[in-house]
Amino acid sequence: MRFMVMVKATADSEAGVMPSEELLTQMGQYNEELVKAGVMLAGEGLHPSSRGARVRFSGAKRSVVDGPFAETKELVAGFWLIQVRSLDEAIEWVKRCPNPMPGDSEIEIRQVFEAEDFGAEFTPELREQEERLRAQVEARQ
């Protein structure tokens, strides 16, 4: 099972405050544990929302909203993509993480959909397309 582990933004992360050397060292050690255990698939920090944008959809119409975005507690400051056997295992890994922000912080864990989760609507043709695209992405890395 794959899980997206999202570090929620804080006022400091949205203000562009960079992590300390101590926190970067701790995160590096934690990431090393994840890699050695074969759990980590990807992980990155994100720039503040002031450097981003949102694309809103309304039927066929598209509109762009530039950051920053007001609801800091709803924003993501970083993420990991991990592969483990269960939500419980994902929780145990996240509990081992250094506190990603000074003071209070929160990390959200969400399971990633797999092809089989979509049922009959995910036809053999769509499955073949998905596999072909994944192979192309992997070949580029």
Rank of each mutant, 00 (worst) to 15 (best):
A139R: 14
R140C: 07
L126S: 10
G52H: 01
S49L: 08
E71H: 09
T72M: 06
V94G: 13
E128S: 15
A53G: 06
F118E: 00
V35I: 14
P124W: 02
V35L: 11
E125S: 13
I91E: 05
R85N: 15
Q83L: 00
P102L: 13
P19R: 06
P124V: 03
M4D: 09
E138D: 13
F69G: 08
I107Q: 10
N31V: 00
D12F: 01
Q29S: 15
V7L: 10
E71R: 07
G103F: 04
F3Y: 15
I107A: 07
E125A: 15
T72S: 08
A70Q: 12
N99K: 02
G59M: 03
H47E: 07
K73M: 11
E106M: 11
R96E: 02
R85K: 15
R110H: 13
M6Y: 10
E89W: 01
K61S: 09
E121V: 09
D12Y: 00
R54C: 10
M18E: 15
D66E: 12
A139K: 14
L87Q: 14
A15L: 03
M27R: 08
E33T: 04
V7F: 08
A15T: 04
A9D: 06
V84H: 09
R96I: 03
A139M: 09
V65G: 03
F3S: 01
T25R: 14
L41W: 02
V17N: 04
F118L: 14
P100K: 05
S49Y: 04
E92P: 01
E108P: 02
T72P: 04
A90Y: 01
V65F: 06
L126R: 12
V112C: 14
F79R: 12
G43M: 07
M18L: 13
E21H: 10
K36L: 14
R134Y: 13
A53V: 04
L24A: 07
D66S: 14
W93C: 02
G103V: 06
L126P: 04
E114V: 05
A77N: 04
V17W: 06
Q29P: 03
W80Y: 14
S13E: 01
I107C: 09
A60S: 14
C97P: 05
K73C: 06
A90D: 03
F122L: 09
E21A: 15
F113E: 04
V76I: 15
E130I: 02
E114I: 01
E22M: 07
E33K: 12
D88Q: 14
N99F: 00
L34T: 02
Q129V: 05
E128H: 12
S105Q: 05
R85H: 13
L41I: 11
V112G: 06
K8V: 03
W80T: 02
E89M: 07
E116W: 01
P48Q: 13
Q136D: 15
M40P: 03
E121P: 00
G67E: 13
A77L: 11
A42S: 13
G59D: 02
R62W: 10
A115W: 00
K36A: 15
I82L: 07
P68D: 12
G119Y: 07
V35Q: 10
E71M: 04
W80F: 09
G59P: 06
N99D: 11
I91G: 00
Q26P: 06
